[in-house]
Design a binder for these strands. Sequence first.
DNA 1: TTCCGGCATGTTATCGATAACATGAAATGT
DNA 2: ACATTTCATGTTATCGATAACATGCCGGAA
Lengths: 340, 340
Amino acid sequence: MSRRADQSATHARMQDVAKRASVSAMTVSRALRAPDQVSEKTRRRIARAVRDVGYVPNELAGGLRAFNRTKLVAAIVPSVRNSLFAATSHGMSDALRARGINLMLGDSHYSPDEEEDLVTAFLAQRPCGIVLHDVVRSPHARKLLLKSGIPVVEVGDLTRSPLDMVVSYSNYAAGKAMTRHLVERGYRRIGFASLATAITARSAARLKGYKAALREAALTIDPARIIEVEGGFASGGAALVKLVEAGADAVFFAGDVLAVGAALECQRRGWRVPGRVAIASFDDHEIAAQVSPALTALKIPRYEIGRRAAELILERHSGVKHRKPVVIDVGFEIIARDST
Amino acid sequence: MSRRADQSATHARMQDVAKRASVSAMTVSRALRAPDQVSEKTRRRIARAVRDVGYVPNELAGGLRAFNRTKLVAAIVPSVRNSLFAATSHGMSDALRARGINLMLGDSHYSPDEEEDLVTAFLAQRPCGIVLHDVVRSPHARKLLLKSGIPVVEVGDLTRSPLDMVVSYSNYAAGKAMTRHLVERGYRRIGFASLATAITARSAARLKGYKAALREAALTIDPARIIEVEGGFASGGAALVKLVEAGADAVFFAGDVLAVGAALECQRRGWRVPGRVAIASFDDHEIAAQVSPALTALKIPRYEIGRRAAELILERHSGVKHRKPVVIDVGFEIIARDST
DNA sequence: TTCCGGCATGTTATCGATAACATGAAATGT
DNA sequence: ACATTTCATGTTATCGATAACATGCCGGAA
């Protein structure tokens, strides 16, 4: 009896397929990866043997020998619960599946420590690419990523000096553009609500854009009209109330689903939007167009970002030498609706 | 010069660390995985060498030799965009990270073909566990999963005969319970809207529950008051209008975010809820409590499901022999709010 | 006929880590 | 003091596939 007595709970090996098809393992390997190098007849025999034994290639072994890589792209998001990242992941996944590459997904919970752990854990799996949905703060993690030689794409914000490549819109420009939009509509006491700027660099960039637009319009920047809150619908409602009490005639919600929460709060209170207060949203969630009034929002091409990021990784793999650093600005768009 | 001339774009190997610390590779291996087998002094020397060269273990090689598995759990969801699956993934991820295990995520787009491809692709990576968010329809995929000997957890619906293990609530029982709730509140012409029952077995089970409850209450089942729609807010609104026109005095939305969309539609039209029509939601999204009126909904412990699924996989790995089949019912709860 | 070249297939070495076994020194027991 | 265990470490073989090289066969050019 062979060393493989415990047949039941084990995968068939290429060797098993080979024996069944009366060829060598190498021929099986070729039949699967380079069918044109194998004669029609043996190829058919092998295909049958593969099905008969239920053979599933071992990418662990194959990847190790062939390029010391798996056919997986690692993605690290600050929070899997956030549907924005889901859209980007979706774009990546679509672009990668065509090439037989799958996704490894990790959640850093907005923590630099967890981010560093994840980077290490993922690098250990030898992915063929890495996508980071936020700026990498840990210096050690940056060092490891650089050293790895693996294509890295950052998609959180449009930095000028990416680790390797970046695909994004500019949070600064977007924050500025939307604020300018509010100024143009005649609002003068514009409030700003976002997630904690200390933990997400994106929020900080948006805030800078907001301030720049106000300065440009010679409006005063009132700290009482700038607040940071947790994510979530309820939180948006609370923020709105606070800002209106601070005298805001419009509020720019630069985070998560805050704006929708604010709009719902207004409905409950019977506040007219605009009129009592205008509302602008950073992200164009499907629901932003459904509440009444429909919300003015920034449309960020999230899916597109994922797709382009994946394509960059694939290009790098097929030997394209990018002129570094690679910085791709996908832009954004303001969808003016009834809330401003 | 060694075969490793191209230092820049390559990972350091255990051998490199070993040389630097003047020990054998095996000692490095032990220092990392079983530190108590290595003396304090050499352990420190190795730790320093690891940092100096920026060594990241190669799980490809390690996994191959040690157990022919990676430290990854594969999860297949029908759609990554759906935040319900995000909650479950989150629960899994939290439970797994503590053991250094990460997540591989695939999106089947509700297609059995893609599901089969994904199962194959994931099995090829030799994950240490698999979680399926839907019933596996492809017989070939089922065969492969069984043969693999890898712990498999299904979390889509509470089937009596899982492939291996199942952690879920009963879609049938939930559909029945919510319908009964509506009956008890006095509604007699209860409509039902869900995603296509042909493509998601879950929807079909919910529909059966709905019908059973009506039969139990001796109410007629009117096909004109049962419709299938696409997911999304807008879609829910359209469904509501259609069902009200068909004479419904209450609608049970058994899918995605349909109920919220319906509530928003009522706001736009100025329809009183309840009064003109009552609305019940299958899932207790955060937003269901935020719209006015707040929606009656089923609370499904999504996070909990993910956590328990992960724990089952971990148990299996630490040698626990479950008495198969393993069926865990996590139950559900009806949160009665103002919409019914 | 002879020789060369392409085609289908086989053989061997290897990817990087680790299980299994081996070794030598220090510690312990009697 | 000697046998025996314990502990820290080293050596060798191996996981399963594939790169690199080798072989043998057949057909056409010379």
